[in-house]
Amino acid sequence: MNSADARGAGRLAWVAGLVIALFGLTMPLHAAENGQIIRKEAWSFTGPFGIYDRAQLQRGFLVYQEVCASCHGMEYLHYRNLSEAGGPEFPEAAAKVVAASVEVKDGPDDQGEMYMRPGRLSDAFVSPFQNDQEARVANNGALPPDLSLMAKARPYGADYLYSMLTGYADAPTEVAMAEGMYYNTAFSGHQIAMPQPLFDDSIEYTDGTPATVDNYAKDVTAFMMWAAEPKLEERHKVGFRVMIYLIIVAGLLYVAKRRVWSRGAH
């Protein structure tokens, strides 16, 4: 191909791309559909060097346990995950206590009966309802979804979850709210079946973090992000080493290629 043409087209393409990217990057709101207001937040885990904040994850777990767990399960988490590396890193004894505080169905025993026993580290998080139908009956027909993967199951992930948890507001006068629904600026369609879950001072934080809705929302969102991506820290760590290695290999191969070619081929 004519190189001048290719260069020209290439330049145009990357300038256009750059303009679009910069425009996107500097906007404080995501380009969400249907008028959803989803703000961009600063999280400790975004970016190639992102990590989790242990204390934040521990507070987030507290919020989940005290507020969310009454309706929402997290079936892909196991109690042992709470003390494993890369997460809230509770001491193993604390995780054991959390597990033992719930009852897990086991069996059948020698009589053929199912029985309940205290939870163990190896058990999965117990869901509040046995199945979807029971959950609907307890929630006016609405199904509170499992939260294990919620941070990856919605566009804009953590930003969306935070905006939704802090997005409860009075409905504008022109909007007719359906029965049993609540107005939320971030939720698609703006009408959500879940009542506002977080209120100031409803949960006691013991590490001095102010007990505000904003902090509860941030912390539980970070916890949900970890629940969805428990290997994030390891992925970033291994990724760094792999990228350095590949860049070095590419550099060496480039020099080797030039030398091989200059030897015989012109």
């Binding site: 080797a256 030039r258 030398r259 200059s262 030897r263 012109h266």
Partner: peptide, 28 residues
């Protein structure tokens, strides 16, 4: 890449080329 001093440089280059190529191969 034409190299007018190809005979001279070929001798010099051989050792360095082999090293780089070997280094690249080893690293890979």
């Amino acid at each position: 890449m034409a190299n007018p001093n190809s005979t001279v440089d070929a001798v010099d280059d051989t050792d360095r080329r082999d090293f780089i190529t070997v280094a690249a191969g080893a690293f890979a």
